[in-house]
Design a protein around this nucleic acid. Sequence first.
DNA 1: ATAAATTTCAAACTGTTGTTTGAATCAGGT
DNA 2: ACCTGATTCAAACAACAGTTTGAAATTTAT
Lengths: 222, 222
Amino acid sequence: MSAETKTQILDAAEVLFSEHGFGDTSLRAITSQAKVNLASVNYHFGSKKQLIQEVLQRYLRVLMPSVDQQVKQLLAKHPQPSVEQVFASLIQPLLLLNQVRPQGTAIFVRLLGRGYSESQGHLRKYITVHYGDMLKRFVSAVHLAVPQLSDAEIFWRLHFAIGTFVFTMASSKALSEIAEADYQEPVAVADIIQKLIPYISAGVGAPAAQYSFGLNPVKDIA
Amino acid sequence: MSAETKTQILDAAEVLFSEHGFGDTSLRAITSQAKVNLASVNYHFGSKKQLIQEVLQRYLRVLMPSVDQQVKQLLAKHPQPSVEQVFASLIQPLLLLNQVRPQGTAIFVRLLGRGYSESQGHLRKYITVHYGDMLKRFVSAVHLAVPQLSDAEIFWRLHFAIGTFVFTMASSKALSEIAEADYQEPVAVADIIQKLIPYISAGVGAPAAQYSFGLNPVKDIA
DNA sequence: ATAAATTTCAAACTGTTGTTTGAATCAGGT
DNA sequence: ACCTGATTCAAACAACAGTTTGAAATTTAT
């Protein structure tokens, strides 16, 4: 059976990738974890690069249409949504990934973090190319929520938000462990997402930069 | 002269590390860029790991005491500072790094981004161990600015802030290029830092999570 | 100036990586 | 049962990594 080996590889790969990153996970580690032969990765996927793509695709295929649907529903109900509402529309699609695989949400968000910080823009381009329309609709929804910001400001704010989310998720395992040791409260990925929403929403919706505190515009100093 | 080779290695290494990451920068790339012999890295630094440490130390030695001083000055003047004020006290110390090396601020913040996302917590531990006291004082200052948040909430918010900062800085080169192409406005690292302050301040100071929008607590769903 | 210590250098070493190979094995259709 | 195509497997490959070596060159101190 072909599909079985392929799935075993994908299942083992996504866990190792999410925990150690793409570069630091060898095909030998993956195949020994998946209990398949080393050569089967190249046989079934062609190359490590394509394996990484398929690992991510398995989740993106489910996530992106779901986000799109949520945003459309939100806008139908609230033509002028709040920032919180726009970002909260990501929660259910993210939790839906637990149906793709056990712990799917946690694995995917960590993969996303790894992908954004390790792949030198490849993942960003891939998502832009394959899900550009959905992305545009999401950005439009954000724009509706913070109409006072310019296009350029929204560009920056959204990348700040991506950074917050993606870094936190890539570190989520370590952060959870520290938090549980220091504050005796167990933390699941869903809890972290819930904590992130107010932070990101407030950040994205914040008034634009002011040169207060008696500082000169930074450009003049640097 | 020993110091000369050492400096040439450090100077070449920090640029390559900041652009391609630690793992994807080979000693051969560094030594050929620095125009020194391959073996001199191990001779002068012992190992690649120690080279990475010294690259970071060169900046941390300058940055951390400066941050500490700024925070102390701020608290002396404003015993109840705003979140913006606390985070803005990072700006001048960061810009001070341009005196360590040309483009020092840009290089360091990218290194920091790489270090936090690639070194699996090593950098975090290193900073905690070597600059724990200064870190505690900074966290206390944040606590003064947002006394309504619990210790645990502040822990999370600060790591969200680190994530925002570190990811943005690691991607700053790519983001600047996109922004300049799309919005025809040149962007320096100092500009990005200036844009980050309102976002991070609003995020850290945001009211704690609410289960609004008709959602159940996420833990019950997941 | 000479001896000693430091630094440089080309080369080799050891280990790991992703990938390829070609034979062995398996499964499905006739 | 047999042939055919798909899959598995152990082994080898080439490229690259960080590190070590020992002799050559250079600098420093006496």
